[in-house]
Design a protein around this nucleic acid. Structure first.
Ligand SMILES: [Mn+2]
Ligand SMILES: [Mn+2]
Ligand SMILES: [Mn+2]
Ligand SMILES: [Mn+2]
Lengths: 218, 218
DNA sequence: TTGTATTTTTAGTTTTGTCTAAATATTAAT
DNA sequence: ATTAATATTTAGACAAAACTAAAAATACAA
């Protein structure tokens, strides 16, 4: 399994190609930051190895084997992210790039030991669930902050946008996973919010509210 | 800098190509487990990038720049080996293969943080010195156990053969770095030794004695 | 339904790193 | 000093993973 093949499988998974849904050549090219013609080549190769289902002009989806491989890469990526944050004091906006490299290290023992060292975390620094060794995990129930109405409150459990810029913005405003957020007021005009987070009141634009995941309380 | 380029620089360093000495195409091919013709190609490419001095039919040696790069890879390799042993309970015969992969991860911050987490170790699990950030280190004074005479003693500080087979043999006989070894008797016929190690007496073949480094005492 | 726009595939190149086989240079031996 | 053995380089090919440009299939819209 080459690094490139692993990256394709991961990308297909993230685009939803693990349950029935077929992923188009163009969409995959976009996600992989490459050209559609390159995707076609790789689709054939992965199909040859029975990692994806590929029908000409209809895109790709993961086979059981492909899904298993994708989940193993995702597991490694997220565990390394936790390691970097918890053990090496990286901030959550710095870990992705390094994890992109570390996820390709080939050693079962290594990743299992990392898992153990971290005491089997269930979520990565961005709130995404970490699959177990045998590819199981449960997506946490969550919704975007922008879906909440006045007076509703919840706990911040994840981010949709994982860009460094967004994460740094959250840091600057002392918004972190685990914090309680209550919607005090919604401005009809621009859909901005007045929220109370960890005691402090804060004004939040709709772009922000559209990228913060909340677990609603009561 | 590609992974392959890094591996070549490291191999040249290990063969002694960092001080004057020129490394032959054949020797490098042997070390890299590849063909001489491939080495010639790479020699040209590295020379183009001013990482090695290459003269046709005369082999390669590292430039200052090449040496610096090689030492940075070696530093990473050895720090990762320490990490695997100290933090993840790998045994010293398991770490090399994984470190061969980890040494190519590109992140200054990562390796500096690992260094810090390990409290700036000076030697790796096999007794080899770890270069600092700016490529400095001192080779420990040491000699092969086979060079000692009867009655002489010292501390076990390293291994020459780092093969898994040899390291496991040492484990089995409870020979570890840091242990004190005293030569009780030398058998003229086969140059085998009778030694006392950590209290226990042990018979050791010349092949073993030729691959254990000792720091002589008094 | 017919024509246009979009998507996807094919064909042909490129780069990196490898290989084999053949040519050439160097070294060692008579 | 020739010759034979060995080491090294060249030439040509291949596989992986990308690209561009052109052809073909599909989707959409008048
Ligand atoms: Mn990530
Ligand atoms: Mn993440
Ligand atoms: Mn090693
Ligand atoms: Mn080592």
């Amino acid at each position: 399994m080459t690094r490139s093949e692993e990256n394709y499988l991961k990308a297909i998974y993230h685009l939803g190609g693990h349950k029935e849904q077929s992923i188009s050549t163009n969409a995959l090219a976009e996600e992989m930051d490459t050209k559609p013609s390159s995707v076609t080549d790789m689709a054939k190769k992965l199909a040859e190895k029975t990692l994806v289902n590929y029908i000409k002009y209809q895109g790709v989806s993961l086979t059981a084997k492909g899904k298993k491989t994708a989940l193993s890469i995702i597991r490694k990526h997220r565990l390394w992210e936790v390691f970097l944050v918890k053990k090496l004091d990286f901030s959550w906006d710095e870990v992705h790039e390094v994890a992109e490299q570390l996820e390709h290290i080939k050693s079962e023992k290594l990743i299992d030991k990392i898992d153990e060292l971290l005491e089997f975390p269930k979520y990565d620094p961005h709130g995404d669930p970490i699959p177990t060794k045998d590819g199981e995990f449960h997506e946490r129930e969550k919704q975007l902050l922008s879906e909440l109405k006045t007076q509703q409150k919840g706990i911040c459990v994840g981010v949709k946008d994982t860009s460094s810029a967004f994460l740094k913005f959250l840091d600057k405003n002392q918004i972190a996973l685990g914090h309680t957020i209550e919607v005090l007021d919604v401005e009809d005009f621009d859909e901005s919010l007045l929220v109370k987070i960890d005691g402090k009141e804060l004004h939040i634009s709709s772009q922000i509210a559209n990228n913060l995941y909340i677990k609603k309380e009561n």
